[in-house]
Design a protein around this nucleic acid. Structure first.
Length: 480
RNA sequence: CGCGGGAUGGAGCAGUGGUAGCUCGUCAGGCUCAUAACCUGAAGGUCGUACGUUCGAAUCGUACUCCCGCAACCA
């Protein structure tokens, strides 16, 4: 049986405007997906993205814009699809939580948790923050306001369904303990462990329909709809056939998930408990990427006006520079201040100079020297050396440490540039066979570079491959 | 004491007990195949502060200072 790999991103709210953080997550995920396709074959990788389309916030925004809710979410879902296209995101499915199979799947999931005895009804009086889509305790509030949204929460008193989160405290801790890589990086796993250890409270998973008509109906209760988080999380299994195609589901589950630091809890605690309740094995791994801060190292904020728009970035630098920077220019799992200067220097240094330029040098020399390219002529020691870099790259990629993996490819390029300078295959006094060996070596090296870079720079690498095959000089990376 | 992360040459980072390293930038030289690209060399750091452990600490301990995230639209 061949190995399968299923990767999913966290679904953004459909009405959010794509920012650099989303861009980071999408690009990281896409690079992983493309790498795994290289490794396992296209048919053995499934890559999920999509939009989260329920909830009070969306309901109200739609009203505000004067649109029917469905029209409203359709409009914004389209924008996210365009965003994916712009970024060259090679998803297998773009799921929307309003898709019919998702409604069905969420319903079935609810019923399963209910049968397991993990859903119960309870009268709840509380302060609800629409911004957070969450009930707040007095303790959470600062000056009577939600600290996250600077707004006074609304008083709600309603009877809702609750999920027995507390029941899974020990099981979650076992899960974390058993698998030290369950949440990556380790510091986030530690955070989760201490969060779960401190005690869990059951959370509310439904809303009264009269307050919020926009949601998945709770099965067997006409007056309630599912709380947006509950249904949204289920998308990870809907997309691979839960509730509609058992065989497909078995084939793909479990998944590797990407999420932002603010989402760690939902993905690695709540969602895992929900899966346990439904008798489904936990996710394979949660990868928590870093947070991109503004250039001064503080948080990006529209109010302060220091946000970086991905659309502007792509327009100014092109999609390759942006993709490359997000993967190779910033550490994969830690917070980092965004830097235009670094984006530019990574692009120039690594892509234009180290990689693109080397490719052209080699193409020109092969043409000028009229040497024959044949892999059997590659020196075995040289090959070994090159393969070492590639192996290091592979090890890092397999652990999803994209940043370190990219550094290895860059080092390989540096090695090539050093080698060509030492051997001087352009020198007049060099023998033909010698030049032939050197150029075969370099040809091999740059081909390996192309393979390693192609998950990040798919289009450019195709061009590079063509150029190398046809021995045509090419400017892969335009000046920026 | 809510929880967590961090402070290393001009900038960004690596480095979990044994003579401080990488990338970019700067300066000097070399090469000419190449997208003024490439190669070599140099300058530049008492590793946030103070105590402590140790033959020896960027690395371990304690205290402190500052920054950031969880936690404003939000990955």
């Amino acid at each position: 049986m061949s190995q399968k790999f299923y990767l999913t991103t966290t679904l953004p709210y459909v009405n959010a405007i794509p920012h650099v953080g989303h861009t980071l997550e999408f690009v990281q995920a896409d690079v992983i997906a493309r790498y795994m396709r290289q490794k396992l074959g296209n048919d053995n990788v499934y890559f999920n993205v999509g939009t989260d389309e329920h909830g009070l916030k969306i309901f109200r925004k739609a009203k505000k814009e004067g649109l029917e809710i469905q029209d409203y979410v359709d409009k914004y879902a389209e924008k996210w699809k365009e965003f994916c296209e712009l970024l060259q995101i090679s998803y297998d499915r773009f799921i929307r939580t309003t898709d019919t199979d998702h409604i069905k799947s969420a319903t079935e999931f609810w019923e399963t948790c209910d049968e397991a005895g993990d859903i119960y009804k309870k009268k709840y009086e509380g302060l609800y923050c629409v911004g957070c889509e969450e009930f707040k305790t007095e303790k959470d509030l600062v000056d009577g306001k939600c600290p996250a949204h600077q707004k006074e929460p609304e008083k709600y008193s309603e009877e809702n369904y609750f999920f027995k989160f507390s029941k899974y405290q020990n099981k979650l801790l076992e899960l974390y303990k058993k698998n030290a890589n369950f949440v990556k990086p380790k510091s986030k796993l530690k955070e989760m462990t201490s969060f779960v250890s401190s005690g869990l409270e059951d959370f509310s998973i439904s809303r009264r329909k009269e307050n919020l008509p926009w949601g998945v109906p709770v099965p067997g209760d006409d007056e309630q709809v599912m709380y947006v988080w509950f249904d949204a999380l289920v998308n990870y299994i809907t997309t691979i056939g839960y509730g509609s195609n058992e065989e497909k589901f078995e084939k793909w589950w479990p998944c590797v998930q990407l999420c932002g630091p603010d989402n760690t809890r939902f993905q690695s605690a709540m969602w895992q408990a929900m899966l346990m309740s439904a008798g489904i094995e936990p996710s394979d791994q949660i990868l928590v990427h870093g947070m991109i801060l503004a250039e001064d190292g503080t948080k990006m904020s529209k109010t302060i006006g220091n946000v970086v728009s991905p659309f502007d970035l792509i327009e100014r630098y092109g999609v390759d520079a942006v993709r490359y920077y997000l993967v190779a220019g910033i550490p994969t799992f830690s917070d980092v201040a965004f830097s235009y200067k670094q984006l530019e220097s990574e692009y120039r240094g690594d892509l234009q100079n180290n990689f693109g330029n080397l490719l052209n040098r080699i193409i020109t020399l092969i043409k000028k020297r009229e040497v024959e390219i044949d892999e059997s002529r590659v020196d075995s020691n040289f090959k070994k050396k090159v393969d070492e870099y590639v192996e290091n790259y592979t090890e890092f990629m397999d652990q999803f440490v994209l940043y370190d993996a990219m550094k290895k490819v860059e080092e390989l390029g540096t090695y090539g540039n050093r080698y060509i300078a030492e051997e001087e295959p352009w020198a007049k006094n060099i023998r033909h066979e010698e030049a032939e060996e050197v150029l075969n070596n370099l040809h091999y090296l740059v081909r390996r570079m192309i393979v390693c870079y192609s998950p990040v720079l798919p289009e450019k690498c195709k061009k590079a491959e063509q150029a190398l095959k046809n021995l045509e000089n090419v400017i892969l990376f335009e000046k920026i």
